[in-house]
Amino acid sequence: MKILVIGAGWLGTQLASQLKADGHELWLSSRSAAKAASVKSHYNHFVLDLSQSVRPDAELEALFKDALVICTVPASRSDGAGYIRALTQLAGLMKQLGSVACIHMSSTGIYEGLTGAVDEQSQLQRSDPRIELLETGETLVAAAVPCCTLRLAGLIGPGRHPARFLSGKPAGAADVAVNMVHSSDICAAVSAIVQQQLWPELFNLSCPEFCSKAEFYFTACKLASLPAPQFESTPTATPSRRVLSTKSQTIAGFQYQFSSALAALPFCS
Rank of each mutant, 00 (worst) to 15 (best):
Q123G: 05
A144Y: 00
G154C: 09
P158S: 13
A153N: 06
E120Y: 02
R151L: 11
R130G: 04
S122W: 06
A144K: 04
R126V: 06
E120A: 03
G137A: 10
T149S: 12
L150S: 00
R126C: 08
T149M: 08
D128L: 14
L134G: 02
L140W: 02
G154P: 05
S127C: 06
D128Q: 14
H161W: 06
Q125M: 13
S122E: 07
A153C: 11
L150F: 10
I131R: 03
D128G: 06
E138L: 03
L150G: 02
L152E: 05
V145D: 05
Q123I: 12
V145I: 08
L124T: 08
I131D: 06
L140P: 00
E120F: 01
L134K: 00
I131M: 07
T149G: 02
C147V: 04
L133N: 02
G137F: 01
D128A: 13
P129F: 10
P162E: 07
A143S: 15
R126K: 08
T139Q: 15
V141C: 04
E135A: 13
V141A: 07
Q123R: 15
T136D: 10
S127T: 13
P158T: 08
P146K: 15
D119E: 06
C148D: 04
E135I: 13
E132N: 12
A142Q: 07
E135G: 03
R160S: 11
D128M: 11
G154Q: 12
L150A: 05
A143T: 11
G157Q: 03
T149F: 05
E120M: 02
L150Y: 05
D119N: 14
L150H: 02
Q125S: 11
E120L: 03
R160H: 14
S127H: 15
A143Q: 15
V145K: 05
S127E: 15
T136L: 11
P162N: 12
E138N: 06
V145Y: 06
I131H: 05
S122F: 05
Q125T: 11
Q125G: 07
I156V: 15
A142C: 06
T149Y: 05
G157T: 02
E135T: 10
Q121W: 06
L152Q: 07
E135K: 15
G137R: 00
I156E: 03
V118P: 01
R130V: 05
L155A: 12
P129I: 09
T136K: 14
D119P: 04
L155N: 06
E135S: 14
D128T: 08
P162W: 03
T136I: 11
H161D: 12
E135V: 14
G154W: 11
T139H: 14
C148M: 08
R151D: 04
L134Y: 01
R151S: 06
T136Y: 13
P146Y: 07
Q125A: 14
Q121C: 07
C148P: 02
P158C: 11
